[in-house]
Write a protein that binds this DNA or RNA. Structure first.
Lengths: 334, 334
DNA sequence: TTGTAAGCGTTATCAT
DNA sequence: ATGATAACGCTTACAA
């Protein structure tokens, strides 16, 4: 592998000059530039990125931490991040945190030890305090799907309250009045905010929130099944079911179908997130789109702008969910 | 950030000695080892991985190229690779190839320029010849889901023929005799082999392959919908439908349902791959499990063994698919 | 505009 | 068993 020395030899210029034409920040005369370029081509020279990193204290790599690789978010988020970063010649290092405090910290340590230029984190277990302290360090940190006030400039999040509101509003506008709600775990901010939006929509339609038709689930499919079972057993009629995510909606639909419900005639169901399989369910699931890929892309853009001095990148920190109408909901039959 | 110099100073030993205790390959007396370790702890010393790479010509990173990040395989494959490699302190760099020749080559170039110690590729577009030539280079290459004879020691693949055989066999054993088949694009080896397995099963059951009940699809959902439409329009009755992957099965099921078929009573459908959403379909899809996560893990193990001198790792190059029985198939009613 | 030379923080080869 | 010291291949003041 040819080195910069050989290029400088062949071109008859100094090391520094070769380096300059590569990094094209300093001016180099057209003539010498050509000489250098020719020499490079002739030798098939490729710079050694490791040596570049050591000398420049820049690795051109950004570290990503997600909860699970097979989670519904990850792939889309990554697609957004990778395309954006790759186009800029940066690369991405992946780790997983499995929603456990120590594993998340471990992963972050690992990425830092790898000298990533920046970190994009999708963490759930780690505390706000930890993140704040982490941000004091020399590796810049960006948060996806989490809002930490003191770090707000580096946070990308979804307006979950709006999403919750939109979901319930659409149900209410279809004439439903008896509405059950399966929430996510209330220690998670997004679950809380989705519920908040739901309540807001109810209030706007002068419907009282009925605690008997409320169930706190776990964001998993089986949890959804469990939840619907419990709700039905209370023998309080309801015509619509709002779920705080698609997994639980799917579990609930399964239970409903197996217990003789004709969907959506007997029960309208709406989810949240618009994960890939929402469109494969039967009936296809009406849900709230969570623009994860865009959020990933935006995280990448923030990194490019802040860390790699890219100008002219529009930054947007909070994303708006939208309603995706499919077949699992319908207007209340009179 | 403390450097090795400061450690050597504080411990009162030479640079070399510090390096030795870190890499624990050469013997260092217990006494000095302790001195060094203490000094490290005291300074909170962390080796600079970039400097290590430059000096040792080893980056401890392995490059991964997949077709699509949101494809059904990727997440599982990655989960297998990441867990295995991370535990060994190696990291993973991701790129995508989008099943296009030049993009795949691009991605590979990129990974090589990043000085990955090895490459794990899931490529579809690039030619065998290219891969063979690539393997002559200094970066070792491992192939997932592709078998290239001269590179066979570095290939991990699924026994697709067996899978195809198992699928059709299960259908045949349920008494079906009129069986339609939606194939994958026949320029892909796995699609060809799955079909081969199908034919083998037919032969074993003395049933002739009927070209009128055959359709070459594209491995996508809409392709499955299209395919079933075409097949039905031929007005040749069939009681079972074998699909070369789950996406097409899903598309076909959608079409069938929308056209009044009661599944699986009117038509048994079987897929291939056992992607996540197979279990979310209605009815849940009987399919052939493709142990992608295990394959990813094995690729990582091969790299650990060959490149990083890990001993005692069992290597297995061809994986066996298994039948997953769910609700989309049933015995033929007399 | 171009060249000189001092790092960057390790590993690895010799000696001792 | 330990220590000097030369790589590793580049970037970046500083000088010219």
């Amino acid at each position: 592998m040819a080195t910069i020395y050989e290029v400088s030899d062949l071109a008859g210029v100094s090391l520094a000059t070769v380096s300059r034409v590569m990094n094209k920040n300093t001016r180099v005369s057209e003539k010498t530039t050509k000489k250098v370029l020719d020499a490079m081509a002739q030798l098939g020279y490729k710079p050694n990125s490791i040596a570049q990193s050591l000398a420049s204290n820049r690795t051109n790599s950004v570290g990503i931490l997600v909860s699970e690789l097979h989670g519904p978010f990850f792939a889309q988020m990554m697609a957004g991040i990778e395309s954006e970063l790759r186009a800029a010649g940066k690369h991405v290092i992946i780790t997983t945190g499995h929603s456990e405090d120590d594993k998340e910290k471990d992963g972050i340590e690992f990425l830092i030890s790898r000298k990533c230029d920046a970190l994009i984190l999708h963490v759930e277990a780690v505390s706000d305090e930890y993140l704040i302290e982490l941000s004091q360090g020399k590796t810049p940190v960006y948060l996806i799907n989490r809002y930490v006030k003191p770090l707000k400039d580096n946070c990308i999040s979804l307006d979950n309250e709006l999403g919750g509101y939109l979901a319930s509003k659409s149900i209410l506008e279809q004439g439903h009045k008896k509405i059950a709600y399966i929430a996510g775990p209330q220690f998670k901010a997004d679950a809380r905010n989705r519920l908040k939006g739901h309540k807001k929509a109810l209030t706007e339609h002068n419907i009282e929130f009925n605690n008997e038709l409320f169930y706190e689930g776990d964001f998993n499919e089986v949890g959804g099944t469990q939840a619907l079972k419990q709700l039905i057993n209370k023998n309080i009629p309801f015509t619509a079911l709002v779920c705080a995510n698609d997994e639980m909606a799917s579990g609930a639909m399964k239970y409903a179908r197996e217990h003789g419900y004709n969907l959506p005639n007997d029960l309208s169901v709406i989810g949240f997130d618009n994960v890939i399989f929402a469109n494969y369910l039967y009936p296809t699931l009406t849900t709230i789109d969570n623009p994860v890929e865009n959020m990933g892309q935006m995280a990448a853009k923030m990194v490019l702008k802040d860390i790699y001095q890219y100008k002219n990148l529009e930054i947007n920190r909070v994303f708006e969910p939208t309603l995706i109408n499919r077949d699992s909901t319908q207007a209340l039959l009179k």
